[in-house]
Write a protein that binds this DNA or RNA. Structure first.
Lengths: 252, 252
DNA sequence: CGAGCAATTGAGACAAGTCAAAGCTGGTGG
DNA sequence: CCACCAGCTTTGACTTGTCTCAATTGCTCG
């Protein structure tokens, strides 16, 4: 039995709500716009978009979406990073992913959220009530199309993670994770040789279906094998990308 | 290392293609229609729908979608069941799910399929070429909306499976699986007490991230504990639904 | 400088995997 | 109609990768 007693009991956020009606052009300068479904709305209709949403900030460690709660709104992250996770009653946690700038959360057919979202650092978000989002989607089919694309991509990523969780060894999981992180946020650039891991070992463990100890041990082993370097706990350098990629695919 | 040497090397199907242009009303009588995204197309436009697709049959054990192949078409299953899976180079297999009547396959943003689909029994399907589907979706926004709903639901299911694969024990996985199967195909009825498992132990194992032996042993254990009965390898009776559900959620 | 938390490392336990040997079952052909 | 084969399933004995428990180290911040 894998009981993670270390779980932080999720604290519900007391969000700072800022109605955006004063600055109808807010969306036009949004940092998230280029990475978000919002860019499916033409520039002319920015005011319409801004009017449909309110913004808020979730403090580090607070949940702004809770599994099981009424799914009455959708969130678009404009700054910061959140962990998305599900819990078992005894505290075992599975992290579904990390949501960064531009990530859309809460697209549920069901009436309740199926996972929780907790701010890692200060998370800024836009909040769309369900009826308002529905109205937007009806008016801008391009946005619905974009949303379908994004959701499909997430499904593909989820299936890749299912392969990882169901069939890969601890070494392979870490290799896959590091390769993915090295590409993450690299934008149109090449995957990076060095990069930061903003999450804790506990987060990595709960994302990869392992324990903290196994994550730590496995990273040390990859280091001893000369595949990576770890300047500090939060930073990684990839020394042998080919080797790491082969490992991630299950070869050797 | 979890090497599944038992893998059947996927055989590419030699599909029986039947252009449907002679019977423009085919879609109106389709068994899959009530369960499929196609029902978003109004009855008046059935001919349009039928013209956009061709039908085919995949023989048991053949793949009609192959991971890595060009994703030039979408499939809608009208009869039979297929397993959707990903493979690692050494043969380890993870089944993403079982696709039955009405299931839509191949909605990829990427240009290649990200998993394979193999017929378990005789699978009848409708095939839509990519451009034709795009045209349909543009003409019938309701279909795109329906597709988004379906994709969202699949994402929710995939995340539930990630929790199972990452954090549940073998007993909990089997309990979750049996509960899910008992609801499956029950339609609007109550979950069934007795039901068939159309897939092999190997399929169940590869779906739950376990081995055949563990699946078998765990089922016998659940039987000895009085939670289930197994009249034959392909049939299950749930004796203690509450107990099984509690187990599936990780309690006890 | 020391409290508090995250990360590492070690030793031993255990759940699930591996290897191997029987049972079952359903289909085929003599 | 039955013997036989082939594939699936079950069961047993043993191995092992990962988890658990526990101690230590390292880092950050008041």
């Amino acid at each position: 039995m894998t009981t993670n007693a270390r779980l932080a009991t999720p604290v519900m956020a007391a969000p700072v709500m800022v109605p955006d009606h004063r600055h109808l052009g807010a969306c036009a300068h949004c940092d998230a716009r280029p990475h978000s479904v919002c860019n499916a709305v033409p520039a002319v209709d920015m005011a319409r978009l801004a009017a449909a949403s309110t913004t808020g900030i979730a403090q580090p460690g607070t949940c702004f979406v809770e599994e099981g709660a009424k799914a009455d709104a959708f969130f678009n992250i404009t700054a910061g990073t959140a962990r998305l996770f599900k819990l078992l009653p005894d505290g075992r946690r599975q992290i579904m992913g990390f949501a960064g700038v531009g990530h859309f959360i809460g697209l549920a057919v069901s009436s309740t959220f199926t996972f929780s979202a907790e701010a890692i650092d200060h998370v800024h978000y836009c909040r769309f009530s369900r009826p308002r989002l529905r109205a937007l989607l009806d008016d801008f089919p391009a946005m619905e199309q974009k949303l379908l694309e994004v959701t499909s991509s997430e499904l593909v990523a989820a299936q890749e993670q299912m392969l990882l969780l169901g069939r890969k060894t601890a070494r392979e999981r870490l290799a896959s994770f590091l390769i993915a992180e090295s590409r993450h946020n690299a934008g149109c650039h090449l995957p990076r040789r060095q990069f930061a891991l903003p999450m804790t070992r506990g987060d990595i463990a709960d994302y990869l279906g392992l324990t903290i100890e196994t994550v730590s041990r496995t990273l040390t082993r990859l280091r001893h094998e000369g595949l990576i370097e770890i300047p500090s706990a939060g930073d990684v350098v990839i020394l042998d990308r080919d080797g790491l990629e082969r490992l991630a695919e299950g070869l050797t």
